[in-house]
Design a protein around this nucleic acid. Sequence first.
DNA 1: ACCTGAACACCGTTCAAGT
DNA 2: ACCTGAACACCGTTCAAGT
Lengths: 233, 233
Amino acid sequence: MGARNRPSSEPRVPLSRERVLRAAVAIADEGGVRALTMRRLAEQVGAEAMSLYHHVANKEDVLDGTVDLLIGEINEVVDRFDPPAEPADWKKAVRRRVLAAREILLRHRWAPALFETRSAVSPQVLRYHDGLIGLMRAGGFSHDLCHHALHALGSRALGFAQELFDPSGAGGGEESVAELEAMAERFPHLVGMLAEVAHDDPDSTLGWCDDQAEFEFGLDIILDGLDRLREAG
Amino acid sequence: MGARNRPSSEPRVPLSRERVLRAAVAIADEGGVRALTMRRLAEQVGAEAMSLYHHVANKEDVLDGTVDLLIGEINEVVDRFDPPAEPADWKKAVRRRVLAAREILLRHRWAPALFETRSAVSPQVLRYHDGLIGLMRAGGFSHDLCHHALHALGSRALGFAQELFDPSGAGGGEESVAELEAMAERFPHLVGMLAEVAHDDPDSTLGWCDDQAEFEFGLDIILDGLDRLREAG
DNA sequence: ACCTGAACACCGTTCAAGT
DNA sequence: ACCTGAACACCGTTCAAGT
């Protein structure tokens, strides 16, 4: 669209891997990963689709690259954080890093799903986890416990968790209230839980949970559990 | 392939949604989700691609259906489990269910990644979680804590967790040992941890972790944390 | 009711040719 | 060195036509 009307004042910006990847993120932000095609990507940077192949190996490389780019953004933010004042503050420091990562990824909703599909090890992901280990080591973790900790946290370390019930999917609208009664026979415990949770908070149904609060709840359970193991030695 | 040589003795099995979905699982088992195309699926059931559309709405429906089918398998298994002998055994019961689910999903490595992309609520997923809530309620959980618990568990409830470092990816081979030294400067904590973990278990590098043990470690941290919250009331 | 062939509008990617 | 048009081998899906 905007590729044609380039003012003659600014010279034609040459293509580069960086520029291609930033364009890829912009496209996915607007229309999801499905909208991210090589042809659309070329259009975004004002070139032909085949020109992209001089700067990225193929589409897989583009996807790997966008992941790396986003985690790079996260690293830029968390690297600026002050180190914890005392060793016992490791938990506070890790928590802050994870929530900062989450804040950035929340601006790129398509990214978490993409992570799962990437098998290439992203240097930026390595750097992020290296920082986490550093905090835990300073807080008194053994290398072995660090290792377990990374596995236990999994994708939560980067600020996201797989939501099996999508808020945007079916089940959050008004009709679901009526449907709930019909479902009560098949899923008594689930409907019972929802009825009570919804009673406490009228806005809350399965699709209307407070994602942020629930994420922090799960994160804290894990961090507290790790802290207890660290104390036990 | 095998669609042509149908012995005349057995009559032509008519197409059905169930048969299509089972074929879809078989294809994904063999070649991953990428191999699962409508044309390949048609071939597998011995029909033309367009015939599929009389039994499934579209490809999205096929993907939703395979997820539902797999969780259905899980439900069949866990529904046969005996209820816990005493209320305090809720944790043992939940643990057993989760590990049973994991056992089944490990036979379909492509499934977890697919889950993340599904927004439709699968009836079988609802049924599975309904059962989990039932166990927790019997164990003394409030509805509110059940709700938090499901969020905290996330995909772990179904027996999988996002592995950010893929064992099959780069980093597990012999060359990685040499690479580790070069990486030591950039990722000192990570390399330090790996060096020590590898010392304890020579086979173990970042790509060679004991997935099952690490999954259970994370699961137990969460279950223990929930138990503590339940006791606290 | 169920199945099919041809066709449409897309993909990612290769190749030979341009500057 | 960087970019491009045409072309290839695929996709999912629609449509009109068959039994």
